[in-house]
Every structure is written in C-alpha cells, then in structure tokens.
Design a protein around this nucleic acid. Structure first.
Lengths: 116, 116
DNA sequence: AACCGGTATGCTTTCTGAAACATACCACAA
DNA sequence: TTGTGGTATGTTTCAGAAAGCATACCGGTT
C-alpha cells in the first residue's frame, strides 16, 4: 500500500484539567449543552444515548472539580425536578470552545506542513 | 468541594492521520522505540506488556498507512527472525515528537491563562 | 533433517467496563 | 395522600475487547 504520495494531517484532542484530574472535555461540554436544551439529566442522557448513570456521574465529577457548580440539580417539585446549567457552566462551555478553537487553528497550520 | 481557587491547565493529545484514518500516535511511537531497542516485535510487546497480537497488528497498520514501511520484518533465519525500525520509521518518530513538542508549548501558554 | 526463535494467524477463554434493571427518595400539586 | 417525574444509588447482566492458547510457517545454523 505505497507508491502514491499520501496526505497527512494532525489530529488532536484537548481538555481542561483541574489539579486532581480531568475537568472538562468535549464529551462533558456536549452533555452540558444537552442539559441546557432538555432541562434534565435524564432527558439529556437519552438525547445522546448515554446511560443516566454515566451522565449523572459526569455532572457530579464536573461540579466537584469546579469552584462553582456547572449544573444545578432540583430534587422533587413540580415535574419531579430537573437540572440546569449555571452561569458558571455557561462560561465554562464558552471557554472550552475558545481554547479548542485556538488549538485547532494552530494544529491545522502545523498539519499542513507535515512531510514524511 | 469549592471555595478555594483552583488551578486549571490544558491537557491534549496529538496524532498523525493518514487520509484513511489514524496513522501515528504516542502509543505506536513507543512501540517503534521498543522494537528498535529489542530487535523484535515479540520482545517489544513483552517489554511493554502488550500482547504480541496487538503489537503485530499495530505494525501492520502503520506500515499500511505509510508510503514506506516503518518496520521491516525478518522471517526465519538466525535467531528465528526479528524486526527493525527502518529509516522511514526513525524519521516518523522524530517528526511526531517535534509536532507534539510544538503543540505542548502552545498549549502550555494557553493553559497558563485559563481563568474561570 | 532437526532445532531454534520469531513471525503469522485462527480459535477459545477470560475480563472488565458499560448498560440494564431495580428501588428508594424528593418535593410540589391537586 | 396519592400521583408524578426526575434525582440518587445499589445490584445484576452482558457484549465486546483483550488475553491466552494452539499451531503453522520461515529460513538460517549445526
């Protein structure tokens, strides 16, 4: 499988670490967005066909790793409760995309020069 | 788990893609280095406690995705055979580390500015 | 031609992380 | 006080991946 000149590009993945471990990556950001859209962890998890358990754990981890919770959960009440993205959560989403975009730009430039 | 100001940093992972998929990441690079050191896929895989099968498959994939093979395999012969990293392989290793280092530098700069 | 040690590849078994299931709790509404 | 629907959490099932086993091949050496 050789002869023809091949094209190479640079792939990458970024995430934000808190001192004790992983804090926020693209997966969690998408979860946040789904929570914002659907109003609950349950519905968000369904929307992205992820188990409730996993989604709930993610939220828990995020909140723990953050100074201020990114998601606020409501127990009981009308409609049984729900969850919403806090102001801090919105900021985190924005920040993540900003960083990712910068790395993306940088890596595209680098990738264009790859020559084996 | 809040109150105290937390420190955040940017984590990342890079790899090289060939047009039909993944080509070279840190895992494969380490495998190459172990093959260089030990002279065979068998010993390299043992050194990094990975199954021979998996290591062999990685080599196969790499070679397929590359214009020139990164690893040359020797069947039979004295000592039963072996494997060695080609010139192209060495170049690929160097290139990968170079790219990774650049991204690393960039992401460190970015990470230093994270403020939530 | 028998041995050696690595490559090559099919087949089986084991393991583990994810999903699924089950259940209790919560607070408001009617 | 009963119903509702989401949160919270322990327990069990299960599929797919990884590991392990088995075997054939290869080509020098002795």
């Amino acid at each position: 499988m050789n002869q023809t000149a091949k094209k190479y590009s640079l792939g990458f993945r970024v995430w934000i670490n808190e001192e004790h471990g992983h804090f926020l990556g693209i997966g969690r950001v998408r979860l946040l967005e789904n929570i914002r859209k659907t109003g609950s962890i349950t519905n968000a998890s369904k929307a992205m066909k992820m188990s409730y358990r996993q989604a709930w754990q993610m939220v828990e981890d995020m909140n723990d790793a953050s100074e201020k919770p990114l998601v606020e959960k409501i127990l009981g009440g009308k409609g049984g409760g729900g969850a919403m993205v806090t102001e801090a959560g919105e900021k985190a989403i924005k920040l993540f995309y900003k960083l990712e975009e910068k790395v993306n730009k940088f890596s595209k430039e680098l990738g264009a020069k790859i020559k084996l």
